[in-house]
Nucleic acid binder design. Structure first.
Lengths: 350, 350
DNA sequence: TTCTTTTTTGCATCCGATTTCATGATATAC
DNA sequence: GTATATCATGAAATCGGATGCAAAAAAGAA
C-alpha cells in the first residue's frame, strides 16, 4: 500500500532525544535565544544539519499566536496591474520575514467572502485588500460589517476607502495623477482632450473623471460631454470608446485612457482607421504595466510606483500587527513615464 | 497603548463552556461527525452563529496533519501564462476544499530554495511547481537532491521533467503542439516556415525546435539554419528575431513564435517595416494568453487549456496526498485557436 | 572552603483543535 | 425484569513547538 509514503517529519523531540537534551533546549537553539551552553548548542545544531530539521510552522504559530503570513486579496491576478503589485508585496514581505498568501476574488462576492474567512481561519497576521469591492464608491454596508468583524482581530489594509470600517487606507493619489496628465498634455499644446474607459461606481475612476472635468474648466479647455466616454477597463472597451471619439464631428487631439488595457484598445481602433499615434492623436494612460512597454507605439503613462506601493502596503500591515502608530490614511504620489504615444500638437510631422 | 487590539479570537472551549458541554462535543458539531444529540447540536450551533466562531486552521492542521493547502511555485506571476495557470489551479483547488499558497521564484535560485523550504515548513499537503528550474533541460543535481528531500514527505508535482527525482510530471504535449502548427501552416500552403524565440536549455523549447526541424524534413519543406532564430521569451526578443528574418534574402511566409510575447514583438517589427500580417507573412504562436486577444491582428495560437491543466495539476496533487494511484507522467494535448494572424499563401489579397 | 550570584537546563503548561476510549444513559431483545 | 446492544458524552492524550519557573550546575566572591 503506502509502501514509502509514511514521511513523518522529525520534530524537536526527535532531535532532543538523540542529542540527550530536553526539547526546550532544542527550541532555544532554533530560536537563537540566549542561555544555551556552547557545547549543547553545537550538538543540537549538528543534528539539525544532519536531519535538515525544519520546524513545523503550524505548531510555531499556534504557540506564539502569529503566523508571519500576510493575506493578500486581489481582484484578479491575471490583470498585470495586480500581478505587479502582488509581486512587489511579496518581495517586501519576504524582506521582512513574512510570507504572502494570495487569494483572487475574481469579481465574485461569494468568493471574496469565503476567501476572507479562509484567511481569518488561517490566522494570518494582517489582510491587505487591493481592488475588489473595497474600490466601490458606495460601500456595501453588509460587507463593511463583515470586514469590521474580521478587522476586530486582524488588521485590515485596503487600497480603496471602505467607509464605516476600521481599516488602514493606502491609496494612489488619483487627483494628482490626473493633474500630471493634463498639465503634460497642456504643455504639449493640447486643448481638445478626451477621456475614455472606467466605471463611475469605482472610487478611483470617479475621482479621475471629477478631476478631469475640473481641470478642463480650470485650464479653460474644451469640455464636451461626448469627450468623456464611459466604458469598462478592458481592451474591447477602449476600442469601442476610441471609435466613438473618432466618429465625432470634432475629434480630440489627445485621449486619456483609464488604464493600459483601454489604451491598447484605443491604439488598435486608431490603427485600423489609419489614424496615426501620436502624430494625429496623442494617447496617454494610467497604470504603467508591461502593456505600455510592448504596445505600438509604447505608451506614455502614469506610473504607480509598484515597489513603493507594495512596500507601504506591507509596512502598514506589519506596523499594525506590531501595534506601531501608523496613519490610517496614506497617499502614494504617482509620476509620469514619457514614452512614444504623445506628441506636441504644433509639430505634427508628415 | 493597545487600547482596542486585544482581539483574542474565541475557541471551542469558549463555546463549550457557554453551552455547558465539553470541547469534544463542540468539535463534533464543527466537523459534522455523528453522535451528538439534536438538542446539544442545536445549542452549540446557535453559539457558533452568535459568535461567528471560526476554528483555528493551525490547530486543526496540527492535530490532523494535513493543511488542505497546496503550495504553488511559479516562475513569475506577472507572466500571463503563469497567471492564467495559477488562477485555474486556485479555482480547481477551491472546488475541492483546498487553498493555494503561491510563491514566485522570479528567476532567483536562492529564492526558489527558500520558498521551497517555506512551503515545507508550512507543511502544505503538496507542492506544484510550474516553470522555474524544473523546466531546464539539464537538471541541476544539487537541486534535484533538494527536491528529493522535500518530496520524501510532500508529494511534488512539476510541469517540467526533473530527472533523478520522485516527482509527478504533468506536461503539455509540445510535440503534438508543434505538429498541429505545422500541419495547419502546410494546409494553408506555406513552405517557407521560420521559428523564433526561446532558449535551447529549456526543455519545452528544445522539444519544439526538435519537432520543428523534424517536421520540416518530413514534410519536405524548406529548412534553413537562419529560419530558426534563437532568442528568449520576451517581446524584445521577438522583435529582434523578426527583424533578422525580414533581413534575409528569402523571407519566410510564416513565422512560428515560441510564445505570445515573442509573437507580439514580431508583429511590432512587421508593422514598423510595413509588412502586413497576415497578408504578407503569417504569424502563429504558443500560449493563448490574453495577449493573443488584444494584439493587432489577433493571434492564431496554440491553447494549453489552462482549465484542464490546472485541474489535472491539482487533481494529481490531491490524488497523491490521498495515496491514490496516480500516473507519474501525464500529458495534456493542446489545441489550435484560429484567429486573424495566419493566411492562405495563395490568397494574398492586395 | 563556603556562600552568592549567574548561567544552564528541564519540567510542565499552553496554544486550539481532533480523536480514542471509558462511562453512563437509552433503547432493544429475551 | 434482566441482559445486551446502541448511542451520547466528556476526560484525556495528541499534534509540535514556545516559554515561565524552579532546580541544578557553574562561576565568582569572601
Amino acid at each position: 500500500m503506502d509502501s514509502k509514503k509514511p514521511g513523518k517529519s522529525i520534530t524537536i523531540y526527535d532531535i532532543a532525544s538523540e542529542a540527550g537534551v530536553s526539547p526546550a533546549t532544542v527550541s532555544r537553539v532554533m530560536t537563537k535565544s540566549a542561555g544555551v551552553s556552547e557545547s549543547k548548542r553545537r550538538a543540537v545544531e549538528h543534528l539539525i544539519q544532519k536531519y535538515e530539521f525544519r520546524p513545523n510552522a503550524l505548531a510555531k504559530s499556534l504557540s506564539n499566536t502569529h503566523t508571519h503570513i500576510l493575506g493578500l486579496l486581489v481582484a484578479d491576478i491575471r490583470n498585470p496591474y495586480f500581478a505587479a503589485l502582488a509581486v512587489e508585496c511579496e518581495k517586501a514581505a519576504n524582506r521582512r520575514g513574512y510570507t504572502v498568501m494570495l487569494c483572487n476574488v475574481l469579481n465574485d462576492n461569494a468568493l471574496e467572502d469565503s476567501n476572507l474567512e479562509k484567511l481569518y481561519e488561517q490566522r494570518v497576521d494582517a489582510i491587505i485588500q487591493a481592488g475588489c469591492r473595497v474600490d466601490d464608491l458606495v460601500t456595501d454596508t453588509q460587507y463593511a460589517a463583515h470586514v469590521n468583524r474580521v478587522s476586530r482581530t486582524i488588521p485590515f489594509i485596503t487600497t480603496g476607502k471602505l467607509d464605516g470600517t476600521d481599516c488602514y487606507c493606502l491609496n494612489i493619489d488619483d487627483t494628482k495623477g490626473m493633474k500630471i496628465i493634463i498639465d503634460y498634455l497642456v504643455s504639449l499644446g493640447h486643448r481638445r482632450i478626451a477621456m475614455i474607459g472606467g466605471e463611475n461606481r469605482k472610487e478611483s475612476t470617479y475621482e479621475k473623471w471629477r478631476q478631469y472635468i475640473y481641470l478642463m474648466g480650470k485650464n479653460d479647455l474644451v469640455f464636451r460631454d461626448d469627450y468623456l466616454q464611459e466604458g469598462s477597463y478592458s481592451e474591447k472597451s477602449g476600442y469601442r470608446c476610441m471609435n466613438r471619439l473618432l466618429d465625432l464631428d470634432i475629434v480630440p487631439t489627445a485621449v486619456i485612457a483609464v488604464n493600459d488595457f483601454t489604451a491598447v484598445g484605443a491604439l488598435k481602433a486608431a490603427a485600423e482607421r489609419g489614424v496615426r499615434i501620436p502624430q494625429d492623436i496623442s494617447v496617454i494612460s494610467f497604470d504603467n504595466t508591461f502593456l505600455s512597454e510592448i504596445s505600438a507605439p509604447k505608451l506614455t503613462t502614469i506610473d504607480y510606483n509598484y515597489k513603493l506601493f507594495g512596500e507601504k502596503l506591507v509596512d502598514t500591515a506589519i506596523g499594525a500587527v506590531e501595534h506601531r502608530d501608523i496613519p490610517k490614511k496614506q497617499l502614494i504620489t504617482p509620476s509620469l513615464v514619457v514614452r512614444d504615444s504623445c506628441a506636441d500638437v504644433n509639430q505634427k510631422k508628415e
